[in-house]
Amino acid sequence: MGFDDLIKKGKEIASNKEYTEDAKTAYSAFSSKEGSYQDKAQEAYKERMNHEIRYHPRISQSLLKDLVVVYNSIDTILSIHYSNNIKNPSLQKVLDSVSSLLNKRITNHEICQILEIDSSNYNLLNNHDDILISPTSISNFSRLIPERKARFIESLNNWILQNKDKSTLPTKELSSYYKFEKQTRVIKDHKIVKPVIKKTSNDLKNIQNKFEFKSKDNDKLSLIERIKLKEKTAKIAEPPSNTREDYINSRLVSIYNIIYEFHGIKSHKSYPFSKMVSLVKNSLKSPMSNDEIIDTLNKIANQLDNFEIVDRSEVKVLKISKLDRNLDISKLQ
């Protein structure tokens, strides 16, 4: 291979996103490790192996990689949810958000496969009305996502080593993973004694003034006065013209936080605008219409340099550069 061929091969590798992400991960591990170059190299190799999925002789590599992508996407959606909520989300709602994010249908089947690989990843809670999902720990959850992904790949690799004769990934019925939420009822021993109210003979009589129609004070006003009063009341009830703008302003930070949790520390990436609208809508604690979300995203893009909305071949795209949460929020407030 000549020099020109080496240059060409280097450019091909540099343009491959998978290689560049792996190189960044390895370099980060190499730089953070203290000690000799050998210690640093071993740490980088260990980090690389934590992100490498082993070969399975009967299950396609793409299927194994897809399961890891689904797992990581579920963690991302959960991270967005817990940035705005303290209650555990519905499993179906999370799966719908992941489906929207990956642009393909994700069902209970994938969740069962993930839990069969490593049952410690999530808890499924049956509260009798819905199935809720939660990670085993939500403390600093967004920071744990890379570590959780590496641990899941390790569990997947262990399963591959022990099950090379299998032709499909393991799964069970979803109900086999349920945990039931305990509901306690407090029963007090003491009886409630109702006060006895003595009724007089007058209370039992059909006194005439009980059935008399009492007119409102407004009926004493003249017709013109009643019209003026009605107009005044309507004017007071009419919302000010800037109510919508104030509402959009009040949602800037919460929607920014959702996008921040989703985008993470990536330096630059473009997302289909419609997909981001759907992601935000599924992640909000209090509902917003699509138009309100679009207006909010437009306003964020107008106020921040690292947000840009562009049209590419009749497809709207949201371009996001490196985010600085503290600085960005100070500009939005």
Rank of each mutant, 00 (worst) to 15 (best):
T168Q: 14
F211K: 04
I259R: 00
L252C: 13
Y260F: 08
I207S: 05
K235C: 05
S215E: 00
F213H: 14
Q183S: 12
I187K: 15
D219C: 02
E231C: 10
K214S: 10
N206V: 06
I258P: 06
K198W: 15
F262P: 03
K179F: 03
P195L: 09
I187M: 09
M276W: 03
Q208M: 11
R226A: 02
R251W: 03
F262S: 03
L174C: 12
S167I: 10
T171L: 11
S175I: 02
Y178A: 08
K182F: 07
I265P: 04
K230V: 02
H263N: 02
S241P: 02
Y271G: 06
K220T: 07
N209A: 10
I236R: 07
L229R: 08
F180W: 13
P240K: 15
V196G: 02
K199S: 12
V186W: 03
S274L: 14
K214R: 05
I236Y: 07
I207Y: 01
D217Q: 00
K166D: 09
I207E: 15
L229F: 07
I259Q: 01
R244H: 09
D219L: 09
D246P: 05
K194E: 05
I255P: 10
K194G: 00
Y177C: 08
I224G: 11
I224W: 14
P272V: 01
K269E: 13
S222E: 02
K228E: 09
K188W: 08
S176W: 12
H190K: 12
S274T: 13
I236M: 12
N206F: 07
E181L: 13
F273E: 10
R185E: 11
I265M: 01
S267E: 10
K230A: 08
K216P: 04
I255Q: 13
E238K: 13
E245M: 15
N206T: 11
M276Q: 05
E261K: 05
N206W: 13
P170H: 07
E238T: 02
T233I: 08
F213Y: 08
L174V: 08
K232F: 05
K216R: 11
I265F: 11
P272N: 09
D217W: 00
H190G: 12
V186H: 12
D189N: 02
K188H: 11
V196N: 00
K216G: 10
M276E: 06
F213N: 14
V193H: 03
N257G: 01
Y178D: 01
Y260L: 06
I227M: 14
K235G: 07
V186L: 13
E225R: 14
I255T: 00
N242W: 14
K205T: 05
R185I: 12
H263M: 00
E212L: 01
P170D: 11
L174A: 06
K166P: 01
F180H: 04
N249M: 04
K188R: 14
S274F: 14
I259M: 03
R226G: 06
K188N: 11
R226P: 09
